[in-house]
């Protein structure tokens, strides 16, 4: 908070009310967002009996064995590896492809460009579960069923509308004069993209990239539909191994969920935070 240099009494009262309101607001969200995490971690140390009968009590005995079960999940390192490859590759492919497309649409003029943008962005609305049969046919037809490559292409494609939408929004607001100056300096079309627009769109790329990464990390239905063998299985499929037709080992599954969450949290805390703070400080420098 900045030091107030104002004199009027009502002004100070408003500032004080805003301050109380602010902390109430912060705390409310803190509780509601932190609660699931705490619950998740505590529950992952319970027995299934405790989990099903006393959902909010502390475990009598802390069941580290749940974590042992989760760690012994078949091929855990491989699952991790696959998830990382898929999520990272998809994020790169998707944001790159989407930013190139968004650049052409946002920074050039051609017939039907707005129509094109609107059509692509309308893809955000599509309930992708409706597309299982055609997606399966596509992936099977291209011979990339049960490959990580198939998943990467599919995930990259699924996230095109949202990425184009977000990135285009950021690109559209970059001053045209910057590019015009660059053209005078002899920059080519692709240099305008790589040297000027792309670097200036970093907040958009990070915003879209974060979304895409988390999507890939947590996606289940298409991972299940488009892969079958251990070679291309991802973590979300691994977690389901604590489930069977009639009985679920809830607490080992929760332990597995906790383990699988850690990388995403780390990616978020370290990468995202760093990029975002880099961005804002970079922006001030112009």
């Amino acid at each position: 908070m900045k030091k107030s240099i104002n004199r009027s009494g009502s002004h100070i009262a408003i500032q004080a009310a805003a301050k109380t309101g602010k902390w109430f607001y912060i705390l409310f969200f803190l509780v509601i967002t932190f609660l699931p995490l705490v619950w998740l971690v505590i529950s992952s140390f319970k027995t299934n009996f405790e989990f099903e009968t006393q959902a909010f009590a502390l475990p009598k005995v802390w069941m580290w064995s749940n974590y042992k079960n989760a760690m012994s999940m078949a091929g855990l390192p491989r699952l991790f590896m696959n998830s990382i490859i898929v999520a990272a590759s998809t994020t790169i492919v998707n944001t790159l492809v989407a930013s190139m497309g968004a650049f052409a649409i946002a920074r050039e003029t051609f017939r039907f460009q707005n129509l094109l943008l609107n059509i692509i962005v309308a893809g955000v609305l599509i309930p992708i579960i409706a597309l299982m049969v055609p997606f399966f046919k596509l992936v099977n037809g291209f011979g990339i069923y049960d490959t990580l490559f198939g998943l990467i292409v599919t995930y990259s494609a699924i996230n095109i509308p949202i990425s184009v939408f977000l990135i285009h929004g950021f690109m559209g607001s970059i001053p045209r004069e910057l590019e015009e100056a660059a053209v005078i300096d002899g920059c080519s079309f692709s240099q305008r993209f790589s040297k000027i627009v792309f670097p200036l769109t970093k907040p958009g790329l990070v915003t879209a990239g974060t979304f895409v990464f988390i999507f890939c990390w947590n996606e289940f239905i298409y991972a299940m539909l488009l892969t079958s063998s251990e070679v291309s299985r991802t973590l979300q499929l691994g977690i389901r191994f604590f489930r069977s037709q009639f009985v679920v080992d809830y607490t080992s599954m929760l332990a597995a969920i906790v383990i699988t969450m850690i990388p995403t949290i780390l990616v978020y805390v370290f990468l995202h935070d760093r990029i975002i703070s880099g961005l804002t400080s970079g922006a001030v420098k112009g």
Binding site: F103, A104, E108, L116, G123, L131, P134, L138, A157
Partner: peptide, 20 residues
């Protein structure tokens, strides 16, 4: 160049959205 830049995004979009 515009077409070149749009090509990847349009290919994926045609395959995964327009066709389905």
């Amino acid at each position: 160049q515009i077409i070149l830049f749009l090509l990847p995004v349009l290919t994926l979009f045609l395959l995964y959205f327009v066709y389905p």
